[in-house]
Structures are given as structure tokens and as C-alpha cells.
């Protein structure tokens, strides 16, 4: 039978510079889906998400859930869902669970996911992100669909450590790493495996 090897988006993530200013880890094996509410089904969808996953469906640029499963609000009636349990065909089952309430589209391979933390994180991200990521303007739980160095990214602030999850288009992983290395090396970029 056809047996294909999977290559993660950020296979080339590497440490650079001295220090531990930014700590990066690729979130591998995460199922990702775009969930879009069907017409007129937003309330029913929120109820179903609450019932089936015990997650309050966010109605703005916020995230709900945990590392295991989260709904990130990325637009009106639109969420990026991540699931960390490594369940095969998770997105297919999610589509069935939300059938007729939402359209669910597989994106697990469309994005590369990084978990970023470290004392210099916000200073480094400011070199690419044109929005205010401080605790006052972008508290933990906030989500932003924005861009870094002309590349579309989705950011989710997990906590005020700070820890930020970031999703980048897979084809741009190389260009994104160039930006990250160039911006973070001065403070030290460390890959946390």
C-alpha cells in the first residue's frame, strides 16, 4: 500500500545566536480546520460546540479552549480549530459532529504552527507585527489575523508569560524562518524540542 512520509512545515527550525530570548517549538501533529458557520446556524453551532467540547465559541478575535483543543475566532462566523490529540481523521469527525451547522475544511497541512515564548518575544515580534501585543491591548486569549514581513499569520496569545501560538502558510515557512532568525538571533533563538 502507498505509504507516504510526512514532513513538518518547520523541519528547518534551528537555534541561532546566544541567549534564550525567544524559545520556539514547532507544534507537530496538530489537526487544524477552518470552521465556518452555515447560514443562520451561529447560535446552534455555539450550543453544539459547548455541548460537545465544553468550549465557549468565541464571537470575536479571541481563542477558547486549551492546547488540546481550541477555537480561534478569525473572522465573522469563522474559526481556526486546532486539536492536539493526534486523532486520525479528526477533521472528518469534527465535520460530522458539526454537520449542517458549520462547514469544516481541513487545513492541517496548510499551516505551520509554532509555539513561541521567552523574555524577548514581544520585542522580537514587534519587528514584524504591526499591532500592539502588550497585555493591555492584546491580553491572553486574544487572536489576531495579521501579517509579518508581508506574510499572513494568525496569532494567539496563550498566556502572559508570554506564550504565543502562530500559524503561517506552509509554503512560506522558509521565508518566515528567515524573518524569525534575523529578528530573534540578537536576543538568542532557541529551539525547544
Amino acid at each position: 500500500m502507498l505509504d507516504l512520509a510526512h514532513i513538518p512545515a518547520f523541519a528547518n527550525l534551528r537555534s541561532m545566536g546566544d541567549g534564550r530570548g525567544v524559545i520556539a517549538r514547532e507544534r507537530r501533529g496538530i489537526a487544524v480546520a477552518t470552521v465556518m458557520a452555515r447560514k443562520g446556524q451561529s447560535a446552534a453551532l455555539a450550543a453544539a460546540v459547548k455541548e460537545q467540547f465544553d468550549i465557549n465559541l468565541p464571537l470575536g478575535p479571541h481563542g477558547s479552549g486549551s492546547d488540546a483543543m481550541s477555537f480561534l475566532g478569525t473572522g465573522p462566523g469563522r474559526w481556526l480549530v486546532t486539536h492536539d490529540a493526534g486523532t486520525p481523521r479528526f477533521v472528518d469527525s469534527l465535520a460530522q459532529q458539526l454537520d449542517s451547522l458549520a462547514s469544516v475544511v481541513e487545513q492541517s497541512d496548510g499551516v505551520g504552527l509554532l509555539r513561541l515564548s521567552g523574555p524577548a518575544l514581544l520585542e522580537v515580534l514587534a519587528k514584524g507585527v504591526a499591532i500592539d501585543l502588550s497585555a493591555t491591548a492584546f491580553p491572553a486569549g486574544s487572536v489576531a489575523v495579521t501579517q509579518i514581513a508581508h506574510m499572513g499569520v494568525t496569532l494567539w496569545k496563550v498566556d502572559e508569560a508570554p506564550t504565543i501560538h502562530i500559524a503561517v502558510a506552509r509554503s512560506m515557512a522558509g521565508s518566515f524562518l528567515h524573518w524569525l532568525e534575523a529578528s530573534a538571533a540578537v536576543a538568542g533563538l532557541v529551539v525547544d524540542s
Partner: peptide
């Protein structure tokens, strides 16, 4: 009742 998203990257 239409939803759309790019899957070019996927």
C-alpha cells in the same frame, strides 16, 4: 448559504 476558504496551501 455559501462558505469559502483558500486551500491552496493544504
Amino acid at each position: 448559504d455559501v462558505q469559502m476558504v483558500s486551500v491552496t496551501e493544504q
